[in-house]
Amino acid sequence: MIIKILGAGCSGCAALENKTKEAVKKLKLAEVDVVKISDVQSIITYDVLSLPALIIDDKVVLSGKNPSVEEIMNLINGHRE
């Protein structure tokens, strides 16, 4: 599974990255890559309108929000099912 965080350097983006890493750790998932993407050219290919955004296996699951670690865990679990 590849989880991408799209963000162009806003304060919420770094927070989302840290919380996502924590969520992955708490779920004890192996084989998960958390990648931060801050290059504008790549960000716009995902057609998100507000940042930061969370992408799981190339599916946009969250945009323009600041979720809790639990909410990210739910999103990851929801995607795995």
Binding site: G7, A8, G9, C10, G12, C13, V40, I43, I44, D47, V48, L49, S50, L51, G64
Partner: peptide, 13 residues
């Protein structure tokens, strides 16, 4: 409005 979202928003629109 967040300055960092200005680009995706503008292009997306």
């Amino acid at each position: 409005f967040c300055t960092c979202s200005a680009i995706p928003l503008f292009l997306g629109f």
